[in-house]
Write a protein that binds this DNA or RNA. Sequence first.
RNA 1: GCGCCCGUAGCUCAGUUGGAUAGAGCGUCGGACUUCGAAUCCGAAGGUCGAAGGUUCGAUUCCUUCCGGGCGUACCA
Length: 551
Amino acid sequence: MSVNVTDRLSEALRAALSGAGLDAPGEILWEVPREEAHGDYATNAAMLLAKSARRPPRQVAEAIRQHFPRVPEVEKVEVAGPGFVNVFLAPAWCATALGEILETGEAYGRSEAGAGRRVQLEFVSANPTGPLVVVNARAAAVGDSLARILAAQGYRIFREYYVNDAGNQVQTLARSLEIRIRQQRGEAAELPEEAYPGEYLVELAKEYLSTEGPAVLGAPEGERLDRLGRFAVKRITDGQRRVLSAYGVEFDNWFSERALREGGKPPRVLERLRERGYVYDAEGAAWFRSTAFGDDKDRVLVKSDGEATYFVNDIAYHVDKIERGFERLIDLYGPDHHGHVLRMQAALKALGYPDGILDILIIQLVTLLREGQPVRMSKRMGEFVTMEELIGEVGRDAARFTFLTRRHDSPLDFDLEVVTRQTAENPVYYVQYAHARIASIFQHLREKKLPLPDWRRVDLGLLRLGEEQSLIKRLLQFPHVVAAAARTLEPHRIAYYLQELAGLFHPYYKGHRVIGDDVALTNARLALAAGVGLVVRNGLDLLGVSAPEKM
RNA sequence: GCGCCCGUAGCUCAGUUGGAUAGAGCGUCGGACUUCGAAUCCGAAGGUCGAAGGUUCGAUUCCUUCCGGGCGUACCA
């Protein structure tokens, strides 16, 4: 599936340890040292084993070095510092590894680590009361990229969007729409304080009148709000779906809270919690004993007016996910749902589900700037920058990439001016440009009517320059970067890796011609360029960013 | 008050489950296109990693306290 350097090194190290009469640690960790002089990979195994071996770390490292088997991957092994074992890869082996990368093609970077486990990713899940906004675009970028990364690691991924199409907010939405409709009809209706003030409802009101007519205004209140609510939710949700689709994000399922409620699951979940002893009644309400799981206070499940809180529905929704057969759940929440993390996990624990079945990532705020000045937004006034406007202004690739160059849990300043205006200085273009440049090399080859070599017949051993070796070694790290991104749920690692890879390629390209008089060398360099292009393409694909042939 | 997150270059941020001399982009200054794409490259300047303790062979990373910032802390969703 992929060339895995560290697995091979670990195998050799185990042989060395057993040859030296040392116990092997459970897991051998390899890291890429910052300094080139420290080799291509280093392990601290000797320092970890020093205590149990009752010998100084450097002595242990030296024993490892002496017993290290001769393997084609390794040119030399050194002991350094307090007891590091530094391994230098053999150039000849790197050359063959590049061949394997090219042969692996689009599958390079993928693995079967997930073993087909079913994972559900829930993200965006914005209320169906208005257009998607900038923070939703961030959540969409992170969620979709995580889905791609986990899928590349052999998980079966299901993307889901939870539609809060029930409860007070839909009532409020329906009332707001009704007033806009009345205003369209020339009635002197005023928007109350709690209504949604956005202009989009004026548009929706016009649309309603032209398609449905004004008959609804004469219906009794219950029916009136129900019809208007369903209409508004439907239209707004469709709009959200359209914007997400234009952004390259498709959900496998849009899950309706209304349907969940109508299915009767929430009361059954409540009953289960009660049976397990985590519910008590006080002050006329039913409470969840979340303090038993470290929450700082218990939470209300059923209000004293007899109505269940949204929390009950949310628990029922997660139970539903598990009952649908998902073995692992990942939720992306906005910063305003910060306080829900602990209690949601507590509820699943109370119901007897295993620890760690649910990961919740908080996608932090996005502050929009224009030339360093915050873009004024006021929800109360209904003024905000929508996700659609954002994409229209900066473009899909730049938006996604920018969101993915930050950790998801740190607040993000997104300067519209910087992400659009510059084009030149934007990291996404830096990476994409490497891909386009490589594509143009092959275009040039075609124009000169030169044949595309068969990689298996190319002498890759001719790639002897330091820059060429560095590039190959960086390509070899790609599978590890993807695996790490999957393990930590951090897509930004891939974005940084790609910038570094492009950062090695551009100077190399500048300093050395790929296509020259020496056919053998030309072919070898074409192979290297093809390898870089392949990895850039595979990496960008994991971010949901395009890899253009031309820019 | 309590809980979670965050304090790393002028700005925005990385820093590989604790590793060796802390990095990148932007910005600033100075250079490079008759050769496969200058959306690029080369060079320079820029840091007591918020502070103080502790654990360790070794701390930007883990623990404690403090300072500073964000968010949360509804019988709203």
